[in-house]
Design a binder for these strands. Structure first.
Length: 479
RNA sequence: CCGGGUGUAGCGGAGCUGGUACCGCGCGUGGUUUGGGACCACGAGAUCGCACGUUCGAAUCGUGUCACUCGGACCA
């Protein structure tokens, strides 16, 4: 074994440079590739497979909760986009426009959707007439375009893949219940599928969605203690309905405006997975969305019977419904070990001549590196149990990171000092005044992440101005 | 969008007091290997991000532009 040989595929240590580590992982794990246009990325098969797995699980949940998938066009006429004032103001700065059809200039320029509220509203205007038409529970899987000034793989693409749910309800109560239901779908998904603990909360007025009355969110903490918004769920009241003249006849034969919601998660969650679970050897994927859950690596595969034994194990695991790959390429076993570690495959299975003799194989966990020798009898169940245990381990580790780095502060000074020394999330009481929020950003460098739904009473006064406070807010540096 | 850095073969780098390019890894073929990124031999591959300019001559100097990157501003 050659010592000190430079490893071409080396990944920068996260302690040394977290941002570099992140992009190294994205590239070396073959999740993503750059293109010649800033902010537009190629999702390579391995990265796209992660998204497909996420999509499949979420889509199943959406359908279970009564939603239907639709597809709306990607171009929005300028006049349509401008119907809701707050909404335009929020999105106009980052819209990309189509101005020509062939060589002819268009009479009205068309915006490439940054989000589809306006198109949904136009459509709902046409199809909602009676309370019998409600609720409308639609979801769309698509990509949207936002001309961001700075971009990073997964965290900020100019074009990104997402789903956007858009629903219409007869009453405010029903719409709010929908908003909260979907927030919980997201929270459960993050925790039970991605092994990412979340804080459920409400955005402050300053941070809420353009045009929304209320924005709920799930906030996650990354390994570098910065915050990442995992998903959002908005309650619009009847603001858009009024702007787009969407009305229905209620049971009492009176005209009424329906109440609306929208909610979404994007490929940004993949960035969250990377920064929550990854380590200095590369990606660490949560088992429930890993494109490959088990990689089978034959050892001494040139020897008689080894490949056949490996193929048999591979077939068994595949038959058992596991996502499994066998690598019988002529790379050395050591090379393969490093390769699949970098790609975050949860379990490596080694099977060589000695194992075959003993009716066993070697299982190695990606998260802990722990190695175990297990019998080939009942291997399917052993592996399924191990995958669950890896999920739990990842969750516990991320939860510890969140808990250890969330702390209460009584004053702005304290937030300033703690943020400078240890980062993470500070929770403080807040009076509700935007001026205090701005001051917190200016002086402590943190923005309000959310007003957690699970409130604690830390004191009676706002940490910034000292006036009476009623809400507890989580503050942090966000991606 | 503002300020700093970078751009040479698939990847990482050297060359940058001007004379059309070098190294390691990777890649191809053959052989030997195979329980933590194996080894030997031979071979293929880049008009130096792009454009314009200075020059007899530009990877090298100048201007512009695009992309990446680090801060900052902005960002459902």
């Amino acid at each position: 074994m050659a010592e000190n040989k430079k490893q071409v595929e080396q990944i920068t240590d996260m302690e040394q440079d977290f941002a570099k580590w992140f992009t190294d992982v994205c590239k070396k794990a073959e999740l993503i590739d750059y293109t010649s246009v800033k902010g537009l990325f190629i999702m390579r098969p391995y990265g796209y497979a992660v998204w497909e797995n996420m999509q499949h699980i979420l889509d199943t949940e959406f359908k279970k909760t009564g939603h239907e998938n639709v597809y709306l066009p990607m171009l929005i006429p300028e006049s349509l986009l401008q119907k809701e004032k707050d909404h335009v103001q929020g999105f106009a700065p980052e819209c990309a426009w189509v101005t020509h059809g062939g060589t002819d200039e268009l009479e009205e320029r068309l915006c490439i959707r940054p989000t589809s509220e306006t198109l949904f509203c136009e459509h709902y205007h046409n199809i909602i007439h009676s309370y019998r038409d409600l609720p409308k529970l639609y979801n769309q899987w698509c990509s949207v375009l936002r001309w961001e000034k700075t971009s990073r793989p997964f965290l900020r693409h100019r074009e990104f893949l997402w789903q956007e749910g858009h629903t219409m309800h007869a009453t405010a109560e029903e719409a709010i219940a929908e908003t909260e239901r979907m927030l919980n779908v997201y929270a459960d998904f993050c925790e039970n599928v991605l092994a990412m603990p979340v804080t459920r909360g409400l955005k402050t007025d300053k941070e809420k969605f353009a045009g929304a009355e209320r924005t709920y969110c799930v906030e996650c903490m990354m390994h570098d203690k910065k915050a990442l918004q995992g998903g959002t769920s908005h309650y619009f009241g009847d603001g858009f309905a009024k702007a787009f003249d969407i009305t229905f006849t209620d049971k009492d034969n009176k005209q009424a405006y329906p109440h609306q919601t929208s909610w979404g998660v994007s490929t940004r969650l993949i960035g969250g997975i990377i920064m929550t679970h990854g380590d200095n050897n590369g990606l660490v994927l949560p088992p429930r969305i890993a494109p490959i859950q088990v990689v089978v690596i034959p050892v001494a595969q040139h020897k008689d019977g080894v490949l056949d034994a490996n193929r048999a194990v591979f077939a068994r695991l595949q038959e058992a419904g596991l996502r499994v790959k066998m690598d019988d390429s002529d790379n050395s076993p050591g090379w393969k070990f490093a390769e699949y570690e970098m790609k975050g495959v949860p379990i490596r299975l080694e099977l060589g001549p000695k194992d075959i003799e003993n009716n066993q194989c070697v299982l190695v966990r990606r998260d802990s590196g722990e190695k175990s020798f297990v019998s080939l009898d009942g291997l399917e169940d052993t592996i399924k149990t191990l995958l669950d245990s890896i999920h739990d381990g990842l969750y516990a580790k991320a939860k510890k990171n969140l808990d250890d780095n969330t702390y209460a502060c009584a004053t702005l000074e304290e937030v300033k000092e703690k943020m400078a020394t240890r980062g993470g999330f500070a929770k403080t009481m807040w009076c509700g005044d935007e001026a205090c929020e701005i001051r917190m950003k200016e002086e402590a460098g943190v923005s309000s992440r959310c007003i957690p739904l699970h409130q604690e009473h830390l004191g009676d006064v706002c940490a910034v101005c000292g006036k009476p406070a009623t809400k507890m807010v989580d503050w942090g540096v966000a991606y």
